[in-house]
Each structure stands twice: as structure tokens, then as C-alpha cells.
Nucleic acid binder design. Structure first.
Lengths: 129, 129
DNA sequence: CGGTATCCCTAAGGATACTG
DNA sequence: CAGTATCCTTAGGGATACCG
């Protein structure tokens, strides 16, 4: 086979979430950090304004939500569009990459949501020992 | 339709990761917490001894690994088997539920690992502004 | 409304030493 | 080897006030 034909998506041999210095590890930590995952999950249901996200993600403070959204925007997972009006209106939405990540998180959430009885039982068992 | 015909796997209307008080939210936070996700990812590749996990999950301290594994065991995501020998030998493995969760995390990790160039570019762009 | 700035406190978590 | 115990530091994150 002509070597030139072998071009295509490079097999990923370098990126490794286990490696402390790898970008994927940092991104993974961003994605799985306390408020990011819930924000991505919310945005998986469609674009949201800042205040909508704040209400949807129960318990998040304004400070942490703003900080979280900045980190996600920096990683290229979400877009921020400021209408520039007064009163302000800022919409957040997923990028294609963010949508992939959000879909994965949704799968995880589905598994855990439907496993609630099982988890509750496991905890009771564990605590009884 | 006869109401009795409507029986089946109950649609999950009660569990909600967005709800602060829901078990699924707590479990979701356990799963996505700093060291848990990497430990689950490692165990997704097969059972590991404590020391093996410690080496695989770069940067974790003994203290945090032990604490993390206890939380995952309590949630019913992993099993801990102590051989009771001296020197000690303790093996950790995924439960069926844990395997589902680990598979989801693997999918997430794959997305991020192959998106490293894209993420690096996004960060550069963001930081340049 | 959608943030930022400041203050402050708690708890996550690292380092080290010790034990069955 | 597989932890636990102790100490100590730092950063995560809440509350409040203020601004364009």
C-alpha cells in the first residue's frame, strides 16, 4: 500500500487521561469538576441563559457558575453569546465537541438515576457493617 | 387502555441528578470526583491491587486513594477483596453497575483524548483574546 | 440581568510517620 | 503491602456588595 494512502485520523497513541501532564487529563478534570458536569448536562437540553443555568443547577453560586462557564468556553466545549443589550442577555450553548461530551455525561447520569435503589441498598449494607 | 396493562419498568420520574437531595446527584458527584473517575477508568481495564492503582493513577496519594476506594465500594460500584495474607493483598474490581459507569467514563475519556489538538487550539485562541 | 470584586472560612488533600 | 493517623497547607467555594 502506498504510504500516502495511509493518511486519515491518526490513531491516538499520545493522549492519555492517566498522564498528569496531558491536556486530556486537564480537560477530563474540567469536565468532571463539581459544577461543570451539571452545566454541560443542562446545556445538553438546549441553550440556556446565565440565570436559567443558575436555577437549573441547584446549589451553584453566581461566582462558581461564571468561573465554570469560563473554563468550559476556554476548552472549546461551549459558546458564549452576549447580545450586548441592556438589560444584558447572554446565551450559552454547546459546541459540537461539547455536545459529544454532554451526551456521554447524560449516559452516565441515566445509569445512576436508574440505579438509585441499588445504590441506596449498597450504602445501607456498607454502613451496617 | 386498562391501567393494569401499563405495568413495566417504571419510568424514572423521581431520580434527578439536578436535585441536590437526590441519591443520583450524590453518586454522580462521587463518580465524577477528582480521583474516583480515574480509579474507575483503571478498574475498567481489569482488577487491580491497591499499589497498582496507586501507580496507574498518577499523582494520587495513598490517603486519597484509600478514601476514594471506600466511597466507591460504599456506592456499590466496586468490590474489595482482602486475601488476608501477610504480606497483605487486596484486590479491587468493578461490580456490574461499576462496569456500566466505567464504560461511560471510558467513552468520555476517548472523546477528550482524541480532541486534544482541538482543545489546545481552543485554549490558545481563548487566552490570546 | 449578568456578571466582577472582596472577604473569609471550611474542607480537600499532600507529606510524613507509623502499624498489622 | 496495604493501609491508618496526624499535621498542616492551600485552594475551593459561599456570602455579600457593587457595577455596566
Amino acid at each position: 500500500m502506498d504510504p500516502l494512502e495511509a493518511v486519515g485520523p491518526a490513531p491516538d497513541l499520545v493522549s492519555d487521561v492517566f498522564a498528569r501532564a496531558c491536556t486530556s487529563r486537564a480537560a477530563f478534570e474540567d469536565v468532571t469538576s463539581r459544577w461543570s458536569s451539571l452545566a454541560l448536562l443542562a446545556l445538553g437540553e438546549g441553550p440556556h441563559r446565565f440565570g436559567e443555568l443558575r436555577r437549573r443547577v441547584e446549589g451553584v453560586s453566581e461566582r462558581m457558575l461564571a468561573q465554570t462557564l469560563r473554563a468550559l468556553e476556554r476548552d472549546g466545549l461551549i459558546t458564549r453569546s452576549d447580545a450586548g443589550t441592556i438589560p444584558p442577555r447572554v446565551d450559552y450553548a454547546l459546541t459540537p465537541l461539547g455536545a459529544q461530551v454532554a451526551a456521554g455525561l447524560r449516559g452516565l447520569a441515566d445509569v445512576l438515576e436508574s440505579a438509585v435503589p441499588e445504590i441506596d441498598r449498597a450504602r445501607l449494607d456498607y454502613d451496617a457493617r
